[in-house]
Amino acid sequence: MKVISANKIKNIVAELCIQANLALREDVFRQLKRAYLVEKNKTAKDVLGAIIKNAQIARKEKLAICQDTGLPCVFVEIGQNLKVSGDIRQAINQGVVLGYKKAYLRNSVIIDPIKREKSGYAPAVIHFDIVRGEKIKLTVFPKGFGCENKTQLKMFKPTAGINEIKKFIIEAVKAVGPDACPPYVIGIGIGGTADYACLLAKKALLRKIRNPKSEIRNKSKMQNSKNYKLENELYSEINKLNIGPMGLGGRNTALAINIETYPTHIAGLPVAINLSCHALRSASKTI
C-alpha cells in the first residue's frame, strides 16, 4: 500500500493556499478578459479593466487578490489504496496556517461563531471523499463571505418545472444585485438532500469555466454534456439583467453558470445556489 506522510500533505496545503489567493485561476482570468472585450458600457469596461489589472498586480507582487482571503475550504479525494501516516485533519489545518501566515493573508476565522472573539487562520472547512486508486487530490478553495452570505436553498415540490427553478435562480441573482462583487460565477446544485444540494452548488464553482472557443470546436460533444442547455439559457438571461460589474450596469453580470446534479427523492427537489464573486479562487494538486 502506498503511504503519504501528513507532513507532506501539510506542505502541499500551504502551497495551495498561497497559489489560490495570489494567482487568479486561468479560466476565470480568461473569462474576465473576454468580458472586457465584449463590454460596451463605459463604466463597466473601466471596472473590468481594474479587475484585470488587480489580478495582474496580485500575481506579480505576491499580494492577495482580495483582502477577504476567505474561509479556507479544503476538498480531499483520497484513493482507497493510499495510507496517510499521521493526522490528516491536523495536517490540513497546520498547512492552512502555514500558508496563510507566509503570504500575509487575512486571519478571518472566528473560533466561536456566537462569542466572536479573536480571529485566526484555521480551522478550514474540510470535505473528505474516498475514491478508487492510490492517489490523493487536494483542493484549496478560499471562499469570501461577501458572496457566501448570499447562498440560497429552496426545497421545491417534485412537480415543479424547469421554469420555476430558473425563476428562483434569476430572482436570487437579482436580489444580490451589486452586493457580492459581480460579475459572478454562479454555482448551482440540484438534487440530493438539502445539505447535499448546497455542497453540489459549492463544488460546481470548482469546475473549470467552459471556454467558448473550444466549444465551437467541440460543439456536438459540448451539447451532449449534462446541463449544457440550462447553463446556457441561464447565462444569457442573467446577463440581460443589466447588473454588471460593481452593479453599475452592463452586459456582464455572470461570468459563468456551473450546474451539478444528483439523484434525489420522489417527494422532493432541492435547489441550492452558491455565488462566487469575480475573484473565484481555488488551487488543486494530485499526487
Binding site: 479587475i51 488587480n54 498586480i57 496580485a58 482580495c66 462583487c181
Partner: peptide
C-alpha cells in the same frame, strides 16, 4: 462612495 470591489491588490497601490 463606491470603490473597485474585489480589487484589494490594486487599491493597495
Amino acid at each position: 462612495f463606491l470603490t473597485y470591489a474585489g480589487c484589494g491588490a490594486l487599491l493597495s497601490k
